[in-house]
Design a protein around this nucleic acid. Sequence first.
DNA 1: ATTTGTGCAAATCGTTTGCATCTGA
DNA 2: TCAGATGCAAACGATTTGCACAAAT
Lengths: 139, 139
Amino acid sequence: MTEKHKDLDQTLRQAKLRPTRQRKALAELLFSKGDRHVSAETLFDEAREAGVTVSLATIYNTLHQFTENGLLRAISVDSSKTYFDTNTGNHHHFYIEDRNEVMDMPDGFVKVENLPSPPEGMEVCSVDVVVRIREQKRR
Amino acid sequence: MTEKHKDLDQTLRQAKLRPTRQRKALAELLFSKGDRHVSAETLFDEAREAGVTVSLATIYNTLHQFTENGLLRAISVDSSKTYFDTNTGNHHHFYIEDRNEVMDMPDGFVKVENLPSPPEGMEVCSVDVVVRIREQKRR
DNA sequence: ATTTGTGCAAATCGTTTGCATCTGA
DNA sequence: TCAGATGCAAACGATTTGCACAAAT
């Protein structure tokens, strides 16, 4: 067993998930090439291309389990598909409207100020900023 | 014909939409009681309760036409349903997670600073801030 | 041996579409 | 009159679910 595989096993165990063949394969696709944004469908295609056999149902299960266990973060930019971000840190997004694509914003300095406090008895889960962008119209 | 109806006709004409029975009824539901957030389904139910006969297809058509013509604004807070806001001005939202409910944030002072500029050749359509909130866990 | 995960196909949910019919200008 | 609007039911795309079978501890 390679080093890489040991790491993946670790990651999965830490997330209290059994390191099954499918989960290891998906974890590798997701976490071994920097920050990524996937949808169930794109990950499914990618898995197929990589020769990994997984069902779409398992892709959905896995994405949700990874999200619940802090390995992924879900983002809603568009009301039709859910995207998952491998960067779970505090940061915001660009959303390219015509291309249905999510991009991380180089973070560390975006600041949201003067937020009104939430209604009585409510607490803040997260503050999400989405900057919708499109190809510049020629003038 | 009442004053109110004349106003609605005006609004619709300005939006280059024929003031049909359905559109007038929906416009009245939407615009005669302050700022509101509806989904196709909630508006549909509301219309039924008000004794207005409209099909769900027409609800969807109308919501989209109103949006394209600046009478409504679409918001994506949750990746499953689309919500429409009768407040088309520049403002942001609270989203109550457990209740699937959108609330306007009292605006005028929320500031987003230090936004990185969009990638070359892209322009900003909008900057949307969503603060996700939930009932405070008792301690 | 027991618990947990997987795959398939059917089911669900929000939304869209095609098309025949109706309505407002 | 006739472009534009409406309603219905069927079609859709993303996601979920039920359940029998397989794999991990």
